[in-house]
Computed example of a mutant assay.
Amino acid sequence: MPTQAKQQASQTLSGFEPYVPKEGEEYMGAPMRAHFTKILSRWKQELMQEVDRTVDHMKDEAANFPDPADRASQEEEFALELRARDRERKLIKKIDKTLQLIEDEEYGWCDSCGIEIGVKRLEARPTADMCVDCKNLAEIKEKQVGK
């Protein structure tokens, strides 16, 4: 896929303009931190809206079905939604932690080796706290240990 097409797909799918550092720009300087703050804040807002939609949906759809199969189907649907919202709740906590790292100017460096994580990786996974190499190594170790 040509670079321009990739950028357009990225803008469409994620709703943000990929960051292009200016020549000589400091890694994780104020403009770059503002870019990631915007991404994370928007992501958090979308997750919070989804939580509100779920609550409204569950209130609107809650019914006491006389048929046990219908009731079971509805309960299973609600359980799946609640599981998804629980994962999103954990993600919101991680986003808040990441926003605090940005504010403290500690965002963007690998927790394991200390090198720059990189703009493209952070745009793909804004809550990443490891570089690709350290993350791959951690996943290999995890598979070997069997956690």
Rank of each mutant, 00 (worst) to 15 (best):
T3G: 02
T3A: 08
A5K: 13
Q8D: 15
S10Q: 13
S10M: 12
S10A: 15
Q11R: 15
Q11S: 09
T12D: 11
L13C: 02
F16Y: 14
E17C: 10
E17R: 09
V20E: 15
K22D: 10
Y27G: 04
G29M: 04
R33H: 06
H35Y: 04
H35P: 01
F36I: 00
R42Y: 04
L47I: 08
D52N: 12
R53T: 07
T54V: 14
T54H: 05
T54L: 09
D56W: 07
M58C: 10
D60Y: 05
A62V: 09
A63M: 11
N64A: 14
F65M: 10
D67W: 07
D67H: 06
P68D: 08
D70M: 13
D70L: 13
S73F: 08
E76Y: 09
A79V: 04
L82H: 11
R85S: 07
R87G: 07
E88L: 05
K90M: 10
I92R: 00
K94Y: 01
I102G: 01
D104T: 10
E105C: 09
E106T: 14
Y107R: 02
Y107D: 00
D111H: 12
D111L: 11
C113P: 04
I115N: 11
I115M: 08
E116S: 11
G118I: 02
V119I: 14
V119R: 01
K120Q: 14
R125C: 11
P126N: 01
P126I: 00
D129E: 09
C131V: 05
C131E: 00
V132D: 02
C134M: 09
E139N: 03
E139R: 04
I140H: 05
I140C: 01
K141H: 06
E142L: 03
E142A: 06
Q144N: 05
V145T: 06
